[in-house]
Design a protein around this nucleic acid. Structure first.
Length: 418
RNA sequence: GCGGCCAUAGCUCAGUCGGUUAGAGCGCCAGGUUGUGGCCCUGGAGGUCGUGGGUUCGAGACCCACUGGUCGCCCCA
């Protein structure tokens, strides 16, 4: 085999692609119920858009981006997530001037250069939503409800919603000082990764998966207990809204997202059916991001959800069924004239909405019937010279084996009534 | 970036202690039915045994490297 797909990329072949279509339909359906409008942005952007929004010190920017220089020496990056591009477009086209509140969604491929493993590819797919222009906690809650509605629409039940607040420009700096002080007391006993993070992003030490780190930071102060009045109210509101909508959730005071731009609400939906890569979706509020990207100060919330992981959950739950792709009719012919007739008739029937297939390989009638059976056609029309002349052919029910005569100009009617 | 496991037909896999021409099931093609699928029977096509090197009289098997896959670590969707 000469060419192979690039490491960490995957072909979605027929059979699986139809399941993707179904999932995409669910996403579009739910998004339209919540009145989100689709936005499609380029898959690459200038590198600084991502480094500025996501954060220089995050794993994504520091080691996972697909960055290259194009022929005009500009640094280009394949988008590692969707929010930065959506906001860039929002700002660039002054979308905020046209309406005070903008609700957007996207579906598409994202790129991160990591070691592939279960539920993690280098080209993967996310869907997500962004609501720009309001700081209402209702939108924070809505983000979680949108994601959960998609999962529910697909019949998935095994998930957990974790919520936290990471504060804002007012309350985070003083808290950070508190936290760093506490962490410094145990600094020497922490894992090397966590030690490095004390200086860079101390919040991240909290969600270290290292058991020893967890134990050492057991009694360290948490952001949610040191919020400013505004953030505390907001967080309370979000919880109340989730409760009143009957959405079970856990408060996880250690939850920190891997992107720097979050303020106030941060949340994560994990699947209890997956292995170590169990995050289905994540998101939160980013009230300072639009401004940081050069737009007018505009509050926003959003989330992103992994589609490969969603597919994994679906197949584990036995719900990765695909839509019906079986033809209604297979026209099996004998002789050149009949084959000609089949070609034009198939097209006429297709324009009337019937899924019809014919033989393109000059196969024997037997082989054509075998093909009709293989693709599980509901009916086969058997036609040769005699039938052509008689203007009547045999229509065979492939399930029962029954055959009955049908006039050539009545085929569409026969297919609808049968 | 680090570690474990794996790589034989389109797919799933077997291949003993290193020994002659590398197998099975499924799938595919054809015939058994000169114009009828499925079930059955018969036959056929299909292999760089991941790549390169080494050990050996002899390597699919043993050793090394590389590549890829997979699972995990870090982190994330």
């Amino acid at each position: 085999m000469k060419f192979k797909s690039i490491k960490g990329t995957k072909d979605i072949l027929p059979g699986e692609a139809e399941v993707w279509q179904r999932v995409e339909e669910s996403i579009r359906h739910v998004m339209s119920l919540f009145n989100y409008r689709e936005i499609r942005t380029p898959v690459f952007e200038q590198t600084s858009l991502f480094s500025r929004s996501i954060g220089e010190l995050t794993d994504i920017v520091s080691k996972e981006m697909y960055t290259f220089t194009d022929r005009s020496e500009e640094s280009i990056t394949l988008r590692p997530e969707g929010t930065a591009s959506a906001l860039r477009a929002y700002i660039q086209h002054n979308v905020g001037e046209q309406s005070a509140l903008t609700k957007l969604y996207y579906i598409g491929p994202m790129f991160r250069q990591e070691r592939p493993q279960a539920g993690r590819l280098r080209q993967f797919h996310q869907f997500g939503a962004e609501a720009l222009g309001s700081s209402s906690p209702q939108l924070d809650a809505e983000m979680m409800l949108v994601a959960l509605a998609v999962y529910r629409d697909l019949g998935i039940e095994e998930f957990a919603l974790n919520v936290n607040s990471v504060g804002c420009r007012t309350c985070r700096p003083p808290y950070k000082e508190l936290l760093v002080n506490a962490l410094n007391n145990v600094r020497d006993k922490l894992s090397p990764e966590s030690q490095a993070r004390i200086g860079q992003n101390p919040l991240r030490v909290l969600d270290s998966k290292d058991d020893h780190d967890r134990e050492l930071t057991r009694n360290v102060p948490l952001m949610k207990d040191h919020l400013c009045p505004e953030c505390a109210d907001h967080f309370k509101e979000v919880q109340a809204l989730l409760q009143s909508s009957g959405t079970p959730f856990h408060i996880d005071g250690r939850l920190v997202r891997g992107l720097d731009y979050y303020t106030k609400t941060a949340f994560e939906i994990t699947s209890t059916a997956l292995g170590s890569q169990d995050a289905l979706a994540g998101g939160g509020r980013y009230d300072i991001l639009v401004e940081e990207l050069g737009g007018k100060p505009t509050p926003g919330v959003g989330f992103a959800a992994g589609m490969e992981r969603l597919m994994m959950v679906l197949s584990k739950a036995g719900k990765a069924g695909m839509p019906d792709v079986r033809p209604v009719l297979f026209i099996a012919t004998n002789g050149a004239a009949a084959q000609q007739w089949a070609f034009t008739t198939a097209n006429a029937l297709r324009s009337k909405g019937f899924r019809v297939e014919i033989d393109y390989l000059q196969r024997s009638l037997k082989a054509q019937m075998r093909e009709a059976n293989r693709m599980e056609a509901r009916y086969a029309l058997v036609i040769g010279e005699t039938e052509l002349q008689a203007r009547s052919a045999k229509l065979k029910n492939m399930q029962t084996g029954d055959e009955e005569g049908v006039a050539l100009d009545q085929i569409d009617r026969a297919l609808t009534t049968l």
